[in-house]
Design a protein around this nucleic acid. Structure first.
Lengths: 198, 198, 198, 198
DNA sequence: ACTTAAGCGAGACGGTACGTCTCGTCTTAAC
DNA sequence: GTTAAGACGAGACGTACCGTCTCGCTTAAGT
C-alpha cells in the first residue's frame, strides 16, 4: 500500500550504514555535545563518508532529530477517566523524556536554535511538542469539566507551568531536581481551593 | 580614589572602539542570532580588527555576556515587608528581563552551552542567576515565616516553578505569553489552602 | 601502462587551478621575491582558495620548489669522450641555470634556509645538486684518468671552485658577470702545469 | 671635537640595555637562526620592550648587521711586499670570517635578501665586501706588476674565484670543507704557467 | 545476461572562522 | 629624551568544517 514498500530501481540504501550514522550521532551527542556533531565527525565515527551522510540528511538538525527521535518522543496523554491519573501520566511523560540525557541535549539544541536552523525548531514543535500539548490540554479541559480543576483555569498557562517547571528542574539546572517532582506538580495543579476533590 | 582612576602605563584603551565592539555584538545578536556572533563578524561590523577583539575578550561567550550585561541583569529581590509585594517584584524582574529580546538570545546561549563553553554558563549562573535566586529564596522564606506561605513550602521547587514558567512563557514559546503572567504566577504561588492574602 | 593513467576514485584534481597556482608562485617569485610568496598571496593571485593550495603543498618551500622545478634543473654531466667538452658542458649547465632569475631566487632561498625549512634545503640538494655534482665529479675523474687533469686533483675542491665561482658571478654579485665566464673557468680548470689541452 | 662627545639634553641612552639587545640578537641568530630574530623575541630575550628596540634599529637587518658587526668584518688586505703573503692573508681573512657561525648566518641573510631588505644587502656590501675586495684587488694588481701573476689576469674574476670558493666551502656546504682550503686556493691562484715564482 | 538507476566511497573545490603570531605605529606615565 | 608598557589595525599562519561537486565502483530490479 504505502510508498515504503514500493521498490525503486537502483541500489537500495545500505541500512547498516544508515543505522551506524544515527548511532554515531547519538554517541557524539552524549559524549561531546551537540556542538561536536559535525558531518565530518559523524561520518568518521560511523566509518562512512561525508557524502553519504549528506545524501540522507540535509542539515545537522535533521540528522540529530532523527537520531534522537525515539528519545524525544514525549508521547500523548491518555484519557483514563481520572483527572489525577491523566495529569500524573502527562507529567510523568515529561519528566521521563526530559531526564533522558540525549533528549536533553537535543531539545536544548532545538529550542536554542543554534545554527539559525528554524526548520529544526519547527519540526520539533510540530512532531513532539504539539501532540503532547494538545492531548495534555484536553486532559486539563476534561478535568475542568469534571470540576476537578477550577472553571476559570487557563489551560495554556497551566501547561506552561508544568512544562516550564519540569524543563527547569531537569534540563536547565546544573544538577537536576527530579526527586518528588511529579508529586509536587500534581499537588500544585490541584491545589487551588475547591480543586482538591479528585 | 578607586583603582579605575589609577592611570596605568602604556597607551590607554580606545573606549570608542571598545564600545563599538560591544554595540556590534549586540547588533549581531539581535539581527542574526548568537551563531553569527563570530570574532570575524564582530570586528568587521565594529570597524576594527580581530586582534583588538581578541585582546579584550578571550571567548565569544565572554564577549556576549559583557555586551548584554545590562540586559541580563535580573536584579535582586528587595525586602519590602510585604510578602506579596516581594514576590511580585521578583516575578516582575524575571518577566522584564526574559522579555528583552537580547537577553533571551544570550540566556538561551548560556544555558544551551553551545560551544561547550562551560565558563559562559558558570559566569551567567554566578553573576546573574544566583543573586536573584538567593534573594528570591529569602523572600519566600520570609513569607513562610510570616505564615503567608505554608510551613512546608519547598523553596527551591517554588523558585523553579516561577523561573520555569516565566522562561517557558517568554523565551521558549514561539509567541510569548506575557499577558497576565505576573498576576497568574502570584495567584499560583499564594493559592495553597493556608496561604492568606497579605 | 603507467600509474598516471590509473584513475583514482574521487573528483579529479583541477589541473587548470593547479597550474594557475604554480604560475602565480612563479610570478610572485619574480616580481616580489621569495618573501612575498605567502599562501595567502599565491591563492589570491591564482584566483583560488588557500585551502586548495594547502591541499597540494604542505609548505611554501615545497610549493616554490615545484613551481621552479624546470628552472632549477641543472641537469647531468654527459660523457662525451672529451674531458674539455664534458667540463664545458658541466660549467655551461651551471651558468645557464644560475643565470635564470627565477632559479636564482629559489636557489638562494633553498640555501639560506629562510624559514628553517630544512626539508626544502634537503630536497633541493638531493634532487638538484647531488645529481649534477656526482656526474660532474665522474667527468673530472675521467679527465684525471686520461691525464687531462693532474693525478692529485681534489675532485670535491675543484667542484667547489667551479660551483662557487659560478654562484658568485651570477647570483651573489649585484650585477652578474657571465661574460667569458665559461672560458675562464675552463682555462682555470686545465691550467695546472701538467694538464694538456684535449 | 666629534659629535659623539657633545652632550645632548634629556636622559641618556641606557647602554646596558643597548648591549643586552645586541647580545640577545646574537644569541637568537646562533640558536634559532635569522628567521626567529623578531623584534618581539629580541625584546623579550633582552628583557626590554619592543619600542626600545625599534627606537634604535629601524629594521631587523640593521639590528642584525650591528649585532654581528665585529663577526662579519672581513678586514683589509695588507701590503706586505710579498704577493704570496698578501693573497694568503686575503684568503685567510675570508675563511676565518666565513667560518664564524654567526657571520655565516648573517652574510647568508644579507645576500639572500630575505625581507626584500635591500638596505641590508647594500650596507653589507659597502661596509664589508667592498673594502676587502678593493684591497684584495690591489694586492692582485701588485702581484701582476711584480710578475707573480700573468699580465692578463682578470682581477675581478680571480676575486670571484676566491670568494666563491670560500663561500662554497664554508657557508653553502652542508658540512664545511675548510681543511687545506687556504693552501689549495693559493696554489690555484699561482698555478698558471710561469706564475710559480713567488 | 544486460541495462539502468541509485547508493556509496573518495576526494577536490572555494569558502569562512578559528586562535595565534609578528609587524610597524601609536600613545601614555614614569624616570 | 629615554624607557617600559601596552593598545591598535593589518595580515599571514595552519587547521577545521562547511556545503557542493565530480568521479569510479557496487548493487539490485527490471528487462
Amino acid at each position: 500500500m504505502t510508498d515504503t514498500n514500493t521498490r525503486r530501481p537502483g541500489r537500495p540504501r545500505d541500512e547498516a550504514t544508515h543505522e551506524a550514522i544515527l548511532e554515531a550521532t547519538r554517541r557524539l551527542l552524549l559524549d561531546e555535545g551537540y556542538h561536536s556533531v559535525t558531518f565530518e565527525a559523524v561520518a568518521r565515527s560511523a566509518g562512512t563518508s561525508r557524502s553519504t551522510v549528506y545524501r540522507w540528511w540535509p542539515t545537522r538538525g535533521a540528522l540529530v532529530l532523527e537520531a534522537a527521535a525515539s528519545h524525544i518522543d514525549i508521547g500523548k496523554v491518555p484519557d483514563t477517566g481520572s483527572s489525577r491519573e491523566d495529569l500524573t501520566m502527562a507529567i510523568r511523560q515529561l519528566i521521563t523524556t526530559f531526564s533522558d540525557p540525549l533528549a536533553g541535549v537535543v531539545i536544548m539544541a532545538a529550542i536554542a536554535n543554534l545554527d539559525n536552523d528554524l526548520e529544526m525548531a519547527t519540526t520539533f514543535r510540530n512532531d513532539t511538542v504539539y501532540p503532547w500539548r494538545s492531548t495534555a490540554g484536553e486532559a486539563i479541559r476534561r478535568a475542568v469539566d469534571r470540576g476537578d480543576l477550577p472553571a476559570d483555569t487557563d489551560v495554556q498557562f497551566l501547561l506552561n507551568v508544568i512544562v516550564g517547571t519540569v524543563f527547569q528542574c531537569t534540563i536547565t539546572m546544573a544538577t537536576p531536581m527530579t526527586e518528588g517532582l511529579e508529586d509536587a506538580l500534581i499537588e500544585l495543579a490541584f491545589r487551588s481551593p475547591g480543586s482538591s476533590r479528585r
